[in-house]
Design a protein around this nucleic acid. Structure first.
Lengths: 89, 89
DNA sequence: TCAAATTACGGTCGACGTAAGGATC
DNA sequence: GATCCTTACGTCGACCGTAATTTGA
């Protein structure tokens, strides 16, 4: 499970489909489709239901989403925690 | 920041040097050295002090360590949360 | 001089993008 | 037939490992 996969999952969940999520992530559709598929394979569970008009979260996807957001937030916080700590002006 | 980098950081911190950490991670020294350096570059801070007998955490490294462990734990928990939920026998 | 880390370098594997191919409404 | 996702395929960059170099006690 890579950070890119987690970011991709959140983007697709929030966009409701690959098309807009790919724009948001600045990549094209095929690699995004593959990232999601790889994540699902690794987890052993489908996270999205493929519909005609986009991708909808499965129950497992709904369960995973807050975890995914928490991981991304934890990573951002970790980075900030060691960032140059500008002394209060 | 990749998951491998975070795992590598924790392994080196716990092993006290690259040599044993590399064994633990089943990789050789050079890529491990590069992973740590890349993480430090990305964070803009040295995480280890290079000593003759190994690597010792800097203050920034000490700050980062619990965050790193938390991220790895969150990832493991996220995976378990959607794992095939074997019904109570 | 020894132990540990880093740098150099060549090869391989993975991930991207373009293009073509379903599938669903 | 229009829209969205997926598969095929070729290319290029990233990462690994071996080997050589550097650093510090």
């Amino acid at each position: 499970m890579s950070v890119e996969q987690i970011e991709s999952f959140v983007a697709v969940a929030e966009s409701g489909g690959l098309r807009d999520a790919a724009r948001r992530l600045h990549i094209t559709l095929p690699p995004l489709s593959r990232r999601i598929r790889a994540l699902e394979d690794e987890l052993g569970t489908e996270l999205f239901e493929r519909r005609a008009r986009g991708m909808a979260l499965t129950p497992a996807g709904h369960t995973f989403l807050p975890h995914a957001r928490g991981i991304l937030a934890a990573i951002a916080l970790a980075a900030r925690s060691v960032a140059a700590d500008p002394p209060a002006t």
